[in-house]
Design a protein around this nucleic acid. Structure first.
Lengths: 130, 130
DNA sequence: CATTTGTTCTATAACTAATAGAGCAACTAG
DNA sequence: CTAGTTGCTCTATTAGTTATAGAACAAATG
């Protein structure tokens, strides 16, 4: 797995890590059952502290996207999109969509952008279909 | 104008203020030329410090949504959806959409939610059309 | 000219981000 | 059963952010 983070970004490292893993799951690069690198290994890869990785994994666990086992490590799980999540997500979507509309981007263009992003998640990402 | 903020939220007050104003512009409640309350007046309304409101207004100015004049106060302007904005916005949209898809929400349901939010912005919000 | 308003400066307390080290608890492999 | 790995917890420090606060300046209106 190749995760890229920007140490100079204004976005906290642990948030970037959470976002990248979340996107990898959405893309199908990571599916239920797949293991994530250990906190210490991933921290060593990026040259950051393992506590920072730990924080990102903890966020993902609270999001209900991974399960953390001692010794086995972090594993992607099959999520359940419950009602509280949908409500919270819709509120955040409203804020983000408002930002584009307020900036003058036409509603249909906004929707087209969303559609193409969603389509990019749908396209297959298997390594063993040559 | 009625802006509501939650002092107990984990979202910083100045971010909430920016979000509410952004949404009001997207909804058409605020249109180009409309004045915003003065920083001191809005701060008094919410019982918060005027520096906090100042920070929110400064964000909105950097977003290109309002113009700040001495004495005249803050005024909503006609924005220009430039390319850098679209690219940055698309990246953030990707992260948010990934969150829903990774959580198991079907892509078409995500798109439907976005569409209904955008439609809620389109519906008229004029006070003088009985 | 006087008032209002955004702007800027300094300052402080509480919180967050990231790093760091130490050690505990559980699980697997040998 | 032992040894090692790994998540987890604890304390601690440094740097930055959030929100508050007071004071004063600059520009534009009336």
């Amino acid at each position: 797995m190749i995760l890229s983070i920007d140490l100079d970004s204004e976005v906290p490292i642990y948030v970037q890590l959470r976002n990248r893993v979340t996107e990898a799951i959405a893309e199908g690069v990571l599916v239920a059952g797949n293991p994530l690198p250990t906190t210490r290994a991933l921290a060593a890869d990026f040259g950051i502290n393992f506590h920072t990785v730990n924080k990102a994994y903890d966020l993902l666990r609270k999001q209900g996207l991974i399960r953390l086992n001692r010794k086995t490590g972090a594993v992607v799980i099959t999520p359940s999109p419950d009602t509280p999540f949908r409500a919270d997500w819709a509120a955040r979507a409203r804020t983000l969509l408002a930002e584009a509309v307020a900036k003058g981007v036409p509603a249909d263009e906004v929707l087209t952008t969303c559609r193409s992003v969603l389509q990019s998640f749908d396209s297959p990402h298997s390594e063993d279909t040559p």
